[in-house]
Deep mutational scan, measured.
Amino acid sequence: VSEWTEYKTADGKTYYYNNRTWESTWEKPQ
């Protein structure tokens, strides 16, 4: 699942961004 990158927002929430599909999600990808 290497295309997903984990980021943190300014208020400390974690989200995930897909470099291949430009998708972002709050849930941890499978």
Rank of each mutant, 00 (worst) to 15 (best):
5 T>A: 10
29 P>Q: 04
8 K>M: 12
13 K>C: 14
26 W>N: 07
26 W>F: 15
25 T>E: 05
13 K>S: 05
1 V>P: 14
17 Y>P: 06
11 D>W: 09
15 Y>S: 01
5 T>E: 10
15 Y>T: 00
6 E>Y: 02
24 S>Y: 15
24 S>V: 15
11 D>I: 03
8 K>E: 10
6 E>M: 04
29 P>K: 03
11 D>Q: 07
20 R>I: 15
4 W>I: 02
25 T>V: 14
9 T>Q: 04
9 T>W: 02
20 R>Y: 14
25 T>K: 10
14 T>G: 02
1 V>D: 12
10 A>T: 07
19 N>W: 10
30 Q>Y: 09
27 E>R: 01
27 E>L: 07
26 W>V: 13
13 K>T: 07
14 T>L: 10
5 T>K: 08
3 E>D: 12
23 E>T: 05
22 W>R: 15
11 D>P: 01
7 Y>Q: 08
6 E>G: 01
26 W>S: 10
17 Y>D: 01
13 K>A: 06
25 T>S: 13
7 Y>I: 12
6 E>P: 03
11 D>R: 02
21 T>G: 03
27 E>D: 12
30 Q>I: 14
21 T>D: 08
8 K>H: 12
27 E>G: 03
11 D>V: 01
17 Y>T: 07
21 T>A: 03
23 E>H: 01
30 Q>T: 14
23 E>N: 02
2 S>G: 13
22 W>G: 15
24 S>E: 12
29 P>Y: 04
21 T>N: 06
3 E>L: 05
10 A>W: 08
9 T>R: 03
8 K>G: 02
23 E>P: 01
24 S>F: 14
3 E>Q: 06
23 E>I: 04
10 A>M: 08
16 Y>M: 00
19 N>G: 07
16 Y>V: 00
10 A>N: 09
5 T>D: 08
27 E>S: 04
18 N>A: 00
25 T>F: 12
1 V>K: 11
29 P>T: 04
20 R>A: 14
21 T>Y: 06
6 E>N: 00
10 A>H: 11
24 S>I: 15
19 N>D: 11
28 K>S: 11
15 Y>D: 05
23 E>W: 04
30 Q>S: 14
22 W>P: 03
12 G>A: 00
25 T>Q: 12
12 G>R: 00
17 Y>N: 03
26 W>T: 12
26 W>K: 04
20 R>K: 14
6 E>D: 02
21 T>L: 05
29 P>E: 03
28 K>A: 10
4 W>N: 00
8 K>Y: 09
12 G>P: 00
27 E>Q: 10
14 T>A: 05
10 A>G: 07
2 S>I: 12
13 K>L: 10
19 N>A: 08
28 K>V: 11
2 S>E: 13
13 K>Y: 11
16 Y>P: 02
16 Y>T: 00
5 T>H: 10
15 Y>Q: 04
